[in-house]
Design a protein around this nucleic acid. Sequence first.
RNA 1: GUGGGUGUAGCUCAGCUGGUUAGAGCACCAGGUUGUGGCCCUGGUGGCCGAGGGUUCGAAUCCCUUCACCCACCCCA
Length: 422
Amino acid sequence: MRRLQGTFDLLPQDSARWVWLESRIRAVMARYSFGEIRVPIMEPTELFQKGTGETTDIVQKEMYTLTDRGNRSLTLRPEGTPSVVRAYLEENLGAQRPLWKLFYIGPMFRAERPQKGRYRQFHQYGAEMIGAASPSADVEIITLCRDILLDLGIDDARLILNSIGSAEARAAYNANLRQFLIRPEIASGLCEDCRRRTQTNPLRVFDCKKEGCGRLLRDAPTIDAHLTGEDRQHFEFVTQSLAGLGIACEIDLRMVRGLDYYTRTTFEFKTTRLGAQDALCGGGRYDGLVEVLGGPPTPAVGFAAGMERILATLENCGRSGPAPDRLDVFVCAIGDRARSVLGATLGALRGLGLSADTDFQGRGLKAQMKEAGRAGARVALIFGDDELARGQMSLRHMDEARQVEISADTSTWNRGLFERTA
RNA sequence: GUGGGUGUAGCUCAGCUGGUUAGAGCACCAGGUUGUGGCCCUGGUGGCCGAGGGUUCGAAUCCCUUCACCCACCCCA
């Protein structure tokens, strides 16, 4: 039996990094006053068909979809935003407050071919502001996204920014771009994928990395010609605010995102420290999504970040994450009499709130001490017949290799006895 | 789905043009210290050489198939 392709096991030495990462994320989210939402990792398939969008690669070929016993179609979530919006509507959050700031952390599933920075079960954190029309919300999301990266120690990610306009502008631009792409002199030179995209989602031709396509697209219309005055104002506010905050960004009019629901502001943070999968986080505004999922027109903006990519980036920066947890006390008992009080000894230590462990294999003292060293124990509590006969135990401070005797009467113990080096 | 690369001990890797019982370092276990970790020394456990088939007197080594992993395309976090 082997684990599924594109999945991985996290062993204790690695899970500590994840716990650390999650706690840093939660701390910054709290500073920004975002509340954590936990939603199912399984949803009706329809949620993603409608929300993420039928034309996206995610829905067309990357979803883990299954049929349950009631003949319902379920899907393992490929992203978090549709679920959050679904919960927002289902719990009628809009009626309680006009604006919600929510974040999530958890696994996502996409049936892609694994490679560096890409897995079939991967983990994202993300934040959504639902009910926020103001461009200051876009800035809040971008700043949040950036502050988490900075807090973690990633200070060289580039911010790429674009506005793809309102839904109407996008529709007009889509039509215009399609006109351009079907011109015979253009279409004949495009690759097969781009000809398909011309029909399905013309914006995505800009994603094509083929040289031939790139050359033909040089004269293609760009989105900014289709932005309305309001779109421009909105985008201008965002770029000027960022400039005012001293946040550098590059505007890329051809950056498109793979999800159907984006409107106006879209952005990505990219790193040079990974391979081809260089997007650490991405997001933008999605003013139409709530309505698409059956709610009232509700503006919203958010982002999602890939946690495996962030950890990989940190490793490439030489940032090792948190220091490993140390054990407070390792208990070494010598002989049967001593072993008979092991349980009570461990219980007393743990009762004081200390972490305590011992040897469960009946090994010699040398092996027990080795185990204590391996566990990073601060002190070893050693006793055999000698000590117990005198009502004493030996307390060895591992780092200083210094040893004292303490009373074997657990009722006299306190934490300080095992923490101080006196 | 399409390319390319790699599969030998728990980990990192040697093993030349096929030649007896497959190696090293680290890790693990034990002893040196019959009651004291890290350093050192000695010894030991551990491999269907990814799997299946073929060529050969003989295959970890050559050929075919297959699987897995990695990297890239595609796409995205």
